[in-house]
């Protein structure tokens, strides 16, 4: 982690100097080790980072919970007509149509939804989908934004002008409005061989929406990096453009990428829920936290736990990413050079 090659990862000499000042550090400590020291001291960020990992692990264990503890699948509606608990004669959904609230039994631990499905099981399966979409969308944003940002910043000229205009136009749309429009169109038509209800469709839509928010700062950084001495030296050694971009420019963008990753991830998970709420995200039969909240809103006021349970999970997940990401930024970029406009 803490390696600094001659050409490689020095993310800001100024930053390192600032950090080293008066902290009684051993001489010659690398910027990554410095960042790690700062992050380790930030107990709040670490705690929330741990919470996020916990949420991810629990969601990945959804099938285990479903088979071994609840004994009910995420889409099972089998307990609608007969009581699920013979002793107490409890119904998942009462004859008047009101779903049962949290029971604290292994089945229907967090209650049932209007279709008699187990909320806890759906919460974990839905979480898997929400997190999956978030991660895939963030990867799409990061990869495309890096390609566009590095390309336009490095070569400048006409391609820079075209890419920049393109980013400006995506930017001028409100994020949710663009996401909903794209999402609806693609949910109806699908993308090539991809069916419109596939989970990948909202992930691609969200990935596209956030490209300018990363590509623009990356481009700005590349514009200054390309004028630095080590890039000059590489050029005079006769290295190819591709080689310079990969081994000279890219390592210097590492801290920017690390800072942006949690920010985009948190926003991608939120946007997934928003698009789904508006009917342009995850399509049935798939579940996500977004589908659960929007299904639950239609059952207000009879069964409010249908909104509260997935909503709290969503907020906890996004909050943990945000707090950890904030700590990460403080550690890597204490002078806050990287700032995201939402």
């Amino acid at each position: 982690m803490a390696t600094t090659s001659a050409t490689g990862t020095e993310f800001s000499g100024e930053t390192a100097a600032l950090l080293a000042e008066g902290e009684g550090l051993p001489p010659g400590i690398g910027p990554w080790a410095l960042a790690w020291r700062r992050l380790r001291r930030n107990k709040t960020a670490l705690a929330f980072g741990g919470l996020f990992i916990l949420i991810v692990v629990v969601c990945l264990l959804a099938p285990v919970y479903s088979h071994a503890i609840a004994h009910i699948g995420p889409a099972d509606e089998t307990y609608l007509s007969k009581p699920f608990n013979v002793k107490t004669q409890e119904f998942a959904v009462s004859p008047t149509g009101i779903p049962i609230g949290p029971t604290w039994h292994s089945r229907f631990f967090l209650g049932a939804d209007a279709n008699g499905r187990d909320v806890a099981v759906r919460l974990l399966y839905g979480g898997r989908n929400s997190l999956e979409i978030g991660f895939v969308a963030t990867m799409i944003t990061m990869v495309l934004a890096l390609i566009l940002g590095v390309w336009s910043g490095y070569f400048r000229g006409i391609s820079d002008g075209v890419i920049n205009r393109f980013l400006d136009i995506i930017w001028a749309y409100p994020a949710v409005l663009l996401g909903v429009t794209l999402g609806t169109v693609l949910a109806v038509g699908g993308i090539g061989p991809l069916h419109g209800t596939a989970l990948l469709v909202p992930a691609i839509v969200i990935g596209i929406v956030y490209i300018p928010y990363v590509a623009k700062p990356v481009r700005g950084q590349v514009l200054t990096l390309r004028e630095r001495e080590f890039v000059d030296a590489a050029r005079q050694q006769g290295l190819s453009h591709a080689r310079i971009m990969f081994s000279e420019i890219l390592p210097n963008l590492a801290s920017t990428i690390i800072v942006f990753f949690p920010l985009i991830l948190a926003n991608a998970i939120l946007l997934e829920a928003a698009l789904t709420y508006l009917g342009a995200g995850v399509q049935p039969p798939n579940a996500s936290w977004g589908t659960m909240i929007s299904d639950g809103i239609s059952t207000i006021p009879a069964a409010f736990h249908n909104v509260l349970v997935p909503g709290i999970m969503l907020v906890l997940c996004v909050l943990s990413i945000n707090v950890f990401g904030d700590g990460l930024r403080d550690a890597l970029d204490p002078r806050a050079k990287v700032r995201i406009a939402h």
Binding site: Y277, S294, L319
Partner: peptide, 18 residues
Amino acid sequence: AMIGVSFPPFFLGAVLIY
């Protein structure tokens, strides 16, 4: 502030309405 940016408006709205 972190809690504020982590709340989806439709969820917050549903909670407040309820």
